[in-house]
């Protein structure tokens, strides 16, 4: 009975993984298919000949590298800023009682309730008035602002998971509150920081709506907007578009490879009797 259950569960997981990964596989497949074979071979799982021409074209003969570096700048800055602010806010929510705390929490929740589409016009107006249209700064500010509420709740739950006794033990041991935070609490929150960084990074990396509205010069386009330049009035360059897509996946993958060791839980085991 148990083996049947195990097999069933594994099959279900396998099915899910195939379902989730198939589009990625298709992306890769189209990217390495020579243009002339895209339509002729139809839905074959692997082209009869394959090529890296699409990648070469995208990297050397398009604006892709500009989009790419713009995206890296925007995503990294947003992730770093949002995480920093969210960590500070989450710590105070977790450790202190102060006037207006519940109001702030409600306000932060409210910002998460509306479809972004509704506020895109006012945001455009504000950014335009500030003279920040077509700048990466505008995107960094907007992404940071919109990711802070969720990131804060995320960080708060990580801080809540660390016993207050540890802050107090550190303060008894001679730390100021800031020292206790830096030397004891933050090292234990690394998984939380990594998760928050990763969350904001990917959110910023794949964001299209604001990038489309606030940026229209090629020099400051981020990657998702840049992808649209492969769509021309009369044709879509599928091969190059997919090649660019594959390249765009790389930083996200690298980023998660980098932070995954901090994502493993259980770092706080042994602090208190559990």
């Amino acid at each position: 009975m148990r083996t049947v259950l195990t097999i069933g569960r594994n099959l279900a997981v396998l099915g899910y993984v195939l379902f989730a990964l198939f589009p990625l596989y298709w992306l890769l497949k189209i990217a390495v298919t020579p243009d002339r074979l895209i339509y002729t071979e139809g839905t074959a799982l692997w082209p009869t000949t394959f090529t890296f021409d699409n990648f070469r074209t995208v990297i050397f003969y398009s604006d892709f590298m500009v989009f790419f570096s713009n995206s890296v700048i925007v995503s990294l800055c947003s992730a770093a800023l949002a995480t920093l602010i969210a960590a500070a806010a989450g710590y105070s929510f977790s450790r202190f009682r102060f006037r207006g705390k519940s109001i702030i929490v409600v306000l932060m929740l409210v910002t998460q309730m509306f479809p972004l589409l509704m506020i895109i016009t006012p945001i455009y107006k504000i950014v335009a008035t500030l003279g920040l249209l077509n700048t990466l700064t505008s995107l960094i500010v907007v992404y940071t602002a919109f990711n802070i509420p969720f990131a804060t709740f995320l960080m708060q739950s990580f801080f809540d998971g660390i016993p207050k006794d540890l802050d107090e033990a550190a303060m008894m041991d001679g730390c100021t509150r800031l020292q206790a935070l830096r030397k004891v609490i933050l090292p234990l929150t690394l998984p939380g920081l990594a998760a928050t960084l990763g969350f904001v990074f990917t959110a910023a990396w794949s964001e299209l709506l604001f990038a489309l509205m606030l940026i229209n010069s090629n020099d400051s386009m981020t990657f998702p907007v840049g992808l649209l330049t492969f769509v021309s009035k009369f044709s879509v360059d599928w091969g190059q578009m997919m090649a660019a897509g594959v390249l765009a996946l790389l930083p996200s993958c690298l980023f998660f490879v980098f932070i995954q060791r901090y994502l493993v839980q259980g770092l706080t085991a042994g602090a208190v009797k559990g």
Binding site: P163, D165, L166, E168, A169, A170, M172, V184, P187, L188, L267, T268, A269, G270, A271, V272, K273
Partner: peptide, 12 residues
Amino acid sequence: AMVFQSYALYPH
């Protein structure tokens, strides 16, 4: 110095 009920050892 204080000894806590939960011991409060620094896990890292």
